[in-house]
Design a binder for these strands. Sequence first.
RNA 1: GGGCCGAUAGCUCAGUCAGGGAGAGCGACGGCCUCUUAAGCCGUCGGUCGGGGGUUCAAAUCCCUCUCGGCCCGCCA
Length: 607
Amino acid sequence: MSAGDGDDGVRVGGDDERGDRAYHAFWADEVADRVEARDPEEPVVVKGGVSPSGVPHAGHVNEALRGYYVASVLRERDHDVRQVFTSDDRDPLRSIPYRLMTLDGEYVERDGFDVGALGRNLGRPLTDVPDPLGCCDSFGAHQTALLRQAVDAVGVPVDFYSATALYEDGAFADVAADLLARPAEVRALLAEFQDSVDADGDYWPFRPRCESCGIVTGGVRSFDADTRTVRYVCEDIEAGDRTIEGCGHEGVADLTEGKLPWRFEWPAQWAHFRVDFEPFGKDHAEGSWPSGQEIARDLLDVEPPEPLVYEWFTLDGAALSSSSGNVITAGELLELVESDALRYFFAKEPRKQRDLAVASLDGLVDEFDRFERAYFRGVDAADPDQGAAGADPATAERAYPYVLDPRRVPAAATSAADDPGTVDATLDRVAAADPDPADFGRLRAFLEGVFRERVRVPYRFAAVLGMTERADVREEIARREGHLPDDAPAWAVDLALDRVDHARAWADRTGNRFDYRVERGALPDVDVDGDVAAALAEVASVVANGGDGEAVQGELYEAADRHGVEAADVFEAGYRLFFGDDEGPRLGPFLADLDREFVVARLRRER
RNA sequence: GGGCCGAUAGCUCAGUCAGGGAGAGCGACGGCCUCUUAAGCCGUCGGUCGGGGGUUCAAAUCCCUCUCGGCCCGCCA
């Protein structure tokens, strides 16, 4: 069959049956199909997890959002879904971070915290390491708090778990005891995956915390099934390219004091939470995932979750790396773009390598805007965006209601609905990941009704509007340039202009050509030639007399002409006076929009 | 060495599952509004769809192969 036959039919809800295979325009629908095919018990459990050793960065929210989209699809299909997220904070401290972050999102470099104190705690569980910034119970608790902030910031509601708390509660004790009771089976299985494990060797699937020196050590010698304890000798442990010395202490640990090696900890989590679906980065895909599946099925009698391998993204062309400083946090990104756009980035095809370029964030926001337009346009309408990225209406139809951040829908918009209370309650439940079965239908109806009137100002234009702090001037310029329809409701105008501060921060951070700002303070120190000054004084008169933008713009040229100077010199002087820069926006209309008194005085260089 | 994933315009990316016209935005370039300054409008340039081979009437799309990149096969997650 070919598309040229013209009888492919309309894609209903983005879905199309071909034989026994369902095509889905949105990847999360395909994953949800596979989860449903398992016939899971309710609630369906979606899990994610991160080791919080470094500053939690934008890559970590990828894990949370991938799970969120699948959870959302399943919820719309009337499943009860629980999304859990673990902070694997019993992992040992393996290296000294290059920098830390306060709970307020400020970076702290190595000269700002006690490196030695961390160094003396290498090898200990993160939750046993004192917080170098002093605000939390432990370094692990601090990092976990940051991770939680990041997940919250993108609007993914999860049941958050500390691995240490889980161990202390004995959540993994049964699995650990089960595995330790049959070391030969464990060794035989793991030997297939790890050269370092010998099927006839002395490997034990548990790493006790030394009761003497506190490191997460190896050295298990035996397991006592009656007391559910291991005997161990504290041994050296390898951490990257360094060795952390064990103390040689001979001791006994019970199964809440220590941890499972990751390859076992992961299946233990599946068993404990009864996980049905879990996304993970490609680093796991060929490592712990294959062994984890076998451990789960053959040793624990647990069906592994449905997997989703997602690609890592690069930041400005290079891998995210704490040590090289090439990181960006979710919080930083959310200063630059609205949460909807960031959520959109992680709604795109997961298996594709892509670059997140800060300098090109405007392109991401443009793409989100096309995606949103495609949703409102619908599958049957003509497509002004043609084949542009993000503009496929079938994908937008499925994904947009999940991508749109329900927390950002203005209350004034819901109050315009036929039944505001119902819509508010729906949005609250969706935002809290606890929707009623009919909520997605109500959400879609609201979006296609009231929210259809939302307005987006182009991101680069929003950056330009950021040149002035004054909300009334921003709105006036946006209206004049046709970015705010006359009949747009007030909430839509406010929502559109919310973008300005983000885009302004982007222009500021990248120092790009949209990075100009009105110098409202002291008169900039500008040398102005006498003829240019005279020309500017005449422009000032036009402004003082209430000339509109076009009149001021014309006067800039005409005054230059009358005084025998190049228009370019008049413009440059103007840009220097108002922006401290030698270029800027179209000057006449801009000056006409600012408060007249200030403009007149500045043109006369009085203040 | 073995494996998984990827490669489409200068940049960021759609399109690949289901074969049929190579696309978008940005950038660049040119033009327009009494006006060199765009944040508006119009237009142009820009691609052997990483290379090669195969299947087919037809391949960015399916198959094989090679190259390059990321990751895994140690630790850790």
